[in-house]
Computed example of a mutant assay.
Amino acid sequence: MNHPNQQLIEHFYTCFKRKDYKGMQACYADNAVFSDPVFQNLNAEQVKAMWEMLLSRAKDFNIEFSEVSADDGHGKAHWDAYYVFSSTGRNVVNRINASFELADGKIVKHTDKFDFYTWARQALGFSGWLLGWTGYLHQKVREQAMDNLNKFMASK
């Protein structure tokens, strides 16, 4: 039988695959934090809103997950996201490695890592190819993403 924390991570990604953001939100502790190359240092309220925003706006969205493992305090998984980037209408395949810190049956820290330059080339086309490796574009994408998240949260 799989470790309960492995079951938690598998449940999280199963909900994700079904676009069940409420199921995903329930996996996080009240003091959870999340970071990835775009959304950094989100608190629990923000990360829950982020998944709701992303899934409610997703077009042609699908994920596949694998390599899930966990022990008493840590876990990891690999997941691939397939979607149309809404700002440009471009197809994206994002390959992501996730790490988790877990306590009391909940996610307390979730970190996703992916190659920003690879993502930018797909999502943004020529400008992503040209500038995706720069700190400037990375910062602009972060600012736009946080602005979108703040507006989404304010509208609720």
Score class of each variant (00 low, 15 high):
Met1Glu: 10
His3Ile: 01
Pro4Ala: 08
Asn5Trp: 01
Asn5Glu: 07
Asn5Pro: 13
Gln7Phe: 11
Ile9Ala: 06
Glu10Tyr: 10
Glu10Trp: 10
His11Gln: 15
His11Thr: 14
Tyr13Cys: 02
Tyr13Leu: 01
Thr14Ala: 15
Lys17Cys: 13
Arg18Tyr: 14
Arg18Ile: 11
Tyr21Asp: 04
Tyr21Ile: 08
Gln25Met: 07
Cys27Ile: 03
Tyr28Glu: 00
Ala29Ser: 14
Ala29Asn: 04
Val33Pro: 01
Phe34Glu: 05
Phe34Ile: 11
Phe34Thr: 07
Ser35Leu: 07
Val38Tyr: 01
Asn41Gln: 15
Leu42Asn: 05
Leu42Ile: 07
Leu42Phe: 03
Asn43Gly: 15
Asn43Trp: 12
Glu45Met: 10
Gln46Leu: 01
Ala49His: 02
Trp51Pro: 00
Glu52Thr: 04
Met53Gly: 01
Ser56Tyr: 01
Arg57Val: 06
Arg57Gln: 15
Lys59Asp: 14
Asn62His: 15
Phe65Asp: 00
Ser69Arg: 11
Ala70Trp: 00
Asp72Leu: 08
Gly73Glu: 14
His74Ser: 07
Gly75Val: 01
Lys76Asp: 00
Trp79Leu: 08
Asp80Ile: 06
Tyr82Met: 14
Val84Thr: 14
Phe85Pro: 00
Thr88Trp: 08
Thr88Pro: 07
Arg90Gly: 06
Asn91Phe: 10
Asn91Cys: 14
Asn94Lys: 10
Asn94Ser: 11
Ala98Leu: 09
Ala98Cys: 14
Ala98Pro: 04
Ser99Gly: 11
Leu102Cys: 05
Asp104Thr: 02
Lys106Cys: 02
Val108Ser: 00
Lys109Gln: 15
His110Val: 03
Thr111Gln: 13
Asp112Pro: 02
Lys113Gly: 07
Phe114Ala: 12
Phe114Lys: 08
Phe114Glu: 02
Phe114Ser: 07
Phe116Cys: 02
Phe116Tyr: 04
Tyr117Cys: 08
Trp119Ala: 08
Arg121Val: 09
Arg121Met: 13
Gln122Asn: 11
Ser127His: 11
Ser127Ile: 15
Gly128Val: 12
Trp129Ala: 09
Trp129Phe: 13
Leu130Ile: 04
Leu131Gln: 01
Gly132Gln: 07
Trp133Pro: 00
Gly135Val: 11
Tyr136Met: 12
Tyr136Pro: 02
Gln139His: 11
Val141Asn: 03
Arg142Pro: 04
Arg142Asn: 09
Ala145Met: 04
Met146Tyr: 10
Met146Arg: 10
Asp147Thr: 13
Asn148Arg: 07
Asn150Tyr: 11
Lys151Gln: 15
Ala154Met: 03
Ser155Phe: 12
